[in-house]
C-alpha cells in the first residue's frame, strides 16, 4: 500500500503504478503535486499523474472525488470558476500550461473538451462544427470550411446521419447524435488532447456503444482523458486507469492491471462495488 501514496516520489517518472506497460508511449500531459481549492475546500490533493500520448486514460472514482475538477485543470476551465485556485505544475509536451505567458485560447485549441450533457449551440449543425475553427481563424474559405466540417463529422461517425441536414439546428438531433456533434465540434479545431467528462451518462446503451467505439478510433489521432462512472466502460475503452478517492489519486496503472490486480484496498473495494 505504500506505493499508492501520492506526492512522495521524485518528479520525472510515473508517480506510481501497478505494472509499467511493455513499450510505453511518450507522456503527453504530466501533472505534479496538483492541488485545487474551491475557496477553502481542498478538492484535489497532491495529484501526480502522467497521461500518455494516443492512449485513453480513464478517471474513475466515487462522486465528488474530484475527477471533473482534475479534468478541468488540463484545459484551465477552472479559471472561469469564482474562487477556484490551482497549485502545482501541469505540463503538456514539457510546457507549463499555467505559465502566465501562455494564452488560454491557444491552450484550448490544443485541448478540446466534451461535457456530460450534450451542449450543442442553438445554431445549425454546420455552424456548430465551424464555430471553433472560426474562432481560431482556421478555414477561411468556404470550401476549406466545408471540408473541415465534413472531416470532423466523418471522424465523429456522424456524417452519414446528418449530411442532408447540415443547416438544421444542432439541438434538433437525438441525444446520442448531439453528443457526437459535440465530439465533432471539439475535433474540428484539430486538438492534441480531448477531455471527456462522463460523455455517455445522459445517453442510452446503443448511443453509448457508438461513442465508445468512436473513442477507440479517435485514439489513433488524439490523446483522450475520459471521466466515467461505469467501470465496465473504463475497462472497455481505456488503456490506463486512474482511481480517485476523496481528492486523492489513489492508484494508477494499466487498465487491465487495475481491474484484475489492484494494489490498494480502496481501489479493490471500489471496483468490486463495495462503495461509490
Amino acid at each position: 500500500m505504500s506505493d499508492t501514496q501520492t506526492g512522495t516520489q521524485p518528479a520525472g517518472g510515473p508517480a506510481h503504478g501497478a505494472q509499467p506497460l511493455a513499450n510505453e508511449l511518450p507522456v503527453k500531459v504530466r501533472s505534479r503535486d496538483v492541488n485545487v481549492y474551491y475557496g477553502d475546500a481542498h478538492a484535489i490533493k497532491h495529484v501526480d499523474l502522467d497521461i500518455h500520448q494516443h492512449e485513453v486514460t480513464a478517471l474513475i472514482g466515487p462522486s465528488g472525488c474530484g475527477k471533473s475538477t482534475y479534468l478541468r485543470c488540463i484545459n484551465r476551465m477552472n479559471d472561469v470558476i469564482d474562487g477556484c485556485r490551482v497549485e502545482g505544475t501541469i505540463e503538456m509536451d514539457g510546457e507549463d500550461i499555467y505559465d502566465p505567458k501562455l494564452d488560454v485560447v491557444q491552450l484550448r485549441a490544443r485541448v478540446g473538451m466534451v461535457f456530460q450533457k450534450p451542449n450543442p449551440f442553438p445554431k445549425s449543425v454546420f455552424d456548430n462544427i465551424a464555430y471553433g475553427p472560426r474562432i481560431h481563424g482556421i478555414g477561411n474559405t468556404k470550401s476549406e470550411m466545408d471540408e473541415i466540417v465534413e472531416t470532423s463529422l466523418r471522424r465523429a461517425g456522424l456524417w452519414e446521419e446528418v449530411k442532408d441536414r447540415l443547416s438544421e439546428p444542432g439541438t434538433g438531433l437525438s441525444g446520442g447524435q448531439q453528443q457526437r456533434l459535440c465530439i465533432a465540434r471539439a475535433i474540428a479545431v484539430n486538438p492534441e488532447v480531448i477531455l471527456m467528462d462522463e460523455p455517455c451518462s445522459a445517453l442510452d446503451p446503443i448511443a453509448t456503444a457508438k461513442i465508445e467505439e468512436l473513442i477507440d478510433e479517435l485514439r489513433q489521432n488524439f490523446t483522450i482523458v475520459i471521466v466515467t462512472h461505469s467501470m465496465q466502460q473504463a475497462a472497455r475503452v481505456s488503456q490506463r486507469t486512474a482511481f480517485f478517492h476523496l481528492g486523492i489519486l489513489v492508484e494508477t496503472g494499466e487498465t487491465e492491471a487495475i481491474f484484475t490486480n489492484p494494489q490498494d484496498q480502496r481501489t479493490q473495494d471500489y471496483i468490486t462495488g463495495r462503495f461509490g
Binding site: M77, V104, V105, Q106, R108, F115, Y131, G132, H136, V189
Partner: peptide
C-alpha cells in the same frame, strides 16, 4: 462552458 472549452 462549451464555448469557453473551444477557446472562445
Amino acid at each position: 462552458d462549451g464555448a469557453y472549452a473551444l477557446g472562445a
